[in-house]
Design a protein around this nucleic acid. Structure first.
Ligand SMILES: NC(=O)c1ccc[n+]([C@@H]2O[C@H](COP(=O)([O-])OP(=O)(O)OC[C@H]3O[C@@H](n4cnc5c(N)ncnc54)[C@H](O)[C@@H]3O)[C@@H](O)[C@H]2O)c1
Ligand SMILES: NC(=O)c1ccc[n+]([C@@H]2O[C@H](COP(=O)([O-])OP(=O)(O)OC[C@H]3O[C@@H](n4cnc5c(N)ncnc54)[C@H](O)[C@@H]3O)[C@@H](O)[C@H]2O)c1
Lengths: 221, 221
DNA sequence: AGGAGTTTGTGAACGTGAGAACAAACCGGC
DNA sequence: GCCGGTTTGTTCTCACGTTCACAAACTCCT
């Protein structure tokens, strides 16, 4: 089951580490832009907002890309992380639900610059058909099958109202999408093998509110 | 330090539990809307997309609000969770940076319905001054001090470009905001006592890409 | 060449979180 | 009042994540 050739790099990177690799990637890009060619784990950790021991342990799962007594070559490490995450290639993405949020997402420049390419904007509302957002035409949701198959899309973004999200997810899965980023405030049910990540604004706010309440209560000043 | 009156409820709720309470809250609201008055931990867990043992353990940190052999009273439990999180009261919120994303956030109905009230939209661009978004006037960023003090704002949302985010955060902290939700792709540095949570679209996509890549590589079919 | 100084990579200790399992508590029927 | 069935609250164990601390490995200077 876990038999692999010795050539491919270390496997089984912990989930917590995977979640931080993109942060390191961004910090390294920022260092490159500042003309910095080499950095220590301490410097990179500061730029990424984490503990340096944690950073070193995270990087050790990828391999030994640093030099003791010196540090890391910024460009080299950046490439290694990008390769490990899989963003050296471009990932085609579809966005479904071109309302308030969908418009913002379509205009988001961070897609292109980080290895993702929006290949289609889809909406069920016939009134939106043909509308152009960020240089991309909005197409009917029914065309999802064709678009996904033609472009080899593996990642879908859901920005529809909550009540439509499960249906959209089902259609996505049916035509071969196996990774979903969900902005709708609903729990999605998907078959095994499909990954779902959610971004939920009100959950984040409520977590902040909880701590805020405790601050106010704990210190009567 | 940890001396508390016996009247106030259980303290020190684990962070992982805090992050799930809003999910339970939403599931309970959904059950109420379906006219369901009582539910078992199993049912609620399914609705929230978690393990029932985990749900029961989470709820046990709040107190004993269920009845053995019966389950939980939906409305009662919902109130208890809302009270624990602190969303029985309304939290005033300011949004800074009314661009693509800021517009979407201003129009987001989930604020109001979940215990948050947008008291101001702020932007540094003079061209936006006076513009009305979602029935709220966009005001100059410099007015943040007045607005925060007059409304007792504790929570701020940052939707500016990355290069402006740290400055905005500093200004927020200076005028008394102690919880920040950051949409800009930057690491924010804030003094102790201030909470920052980030929502980062490209990180989420990169995590999906990592798993997607491994799916493709692991199974040569 | 060797030693002082620096920084990585990792083993080991600690803390937090997840899930299985079960006793305690409750309900309804008789 | 008691018994069988049900569901909670909690305990126990294991897995995962974080942090410390240090040997190994490198550079630079003499
Ligand atoms: N606006 C925000 O800032 C924000 C923030 C967090 C979460 N959200 C969530 O994101 C989702 C979208 O928010 P919004 O403000 O853009 O809503 P919106 O109503 O402006 O847009 C929703 C869009 O989805 C389309 N749609 C509806 N059903 C569809 C279907 N079955 N298939 C395809 N398209 C469909 C609609 O035609 C509409 O264009 C909501 O679930 C909302 O709760 C929004
Ligand atoms: N658009 C998206 O869907 C999306 C998704 C994820 C993250 N983001 C991030 O959110 C941020 C905003 O994205 P956007 O697409 O809305 O950008 P935008 O350029 O459309 O809007 C930014 C707004 O911030 C204002 N601003 C700039 N400097 C400011 C300052 N110092 N004080 C106050 N206001 C200031 C600008 O005037 C502008 O109105 C960016 O950091 C972006 O990376 C956007």
């Amino acid at each position: 089951m876990t038999s692999r050739t010795p050539t491919d790099s270390a496997r089984d990177i912990p989930e917590a580490t995977v979640a931080r690799l993109p942060v390191y990637l961004r910090a390294l890009t920022s260092l490159t832009e500042q003309g910095i060619a080499t950095c220590s784990s301490e410097e990179l950790a500061t730029a990424a907002g984490v503990n340096s021991a944690k950073l070193r342990k995270d990087l050790s799962y990828l391999g030994s890309y640093g030099t003791r007594g010196v540090g890391y070559d910024v460009d080299y490490l950046r490439y290694q992380i990008a390769r490990e995450i899989g963003v050296t290639q471009d990932w085609p993405v579809v966005i479904v639900g071109i309302g308030n949020l969908g418009h913002a997402l379509a205009n988001f420049s961070g897609f292109r610059s980080r290895g993702f390419r929006v290949v289609a904007l889809l909406d069920a509302d016939p009134a939106r058909k043909g509308e152009e957002v960020a240089g991309i035409e909005v197409r009917p949701f029914d065309e999802i099958d064709t678009i996904v198959r033609e472009n080899g899309v593996a990642i879908g973004v859901i920005a529809t109202p909550a009540h439509a999200a499960q249906d959209v997810a089902d259609r996505m899965v049916a035509c071969g999408i196996s990774s979903i980023l969900n902005f709708a405030p609903t729990v999605l049910t998907v078959p095994p093998g499909v990954d779902v990540r959610k971004v939920d604004l009100s959950i984040e706010l409520q977590i902040l509110a909880y701590h805020e309440q405790r601050k106010a209560h704990g210190e009567p000043l």
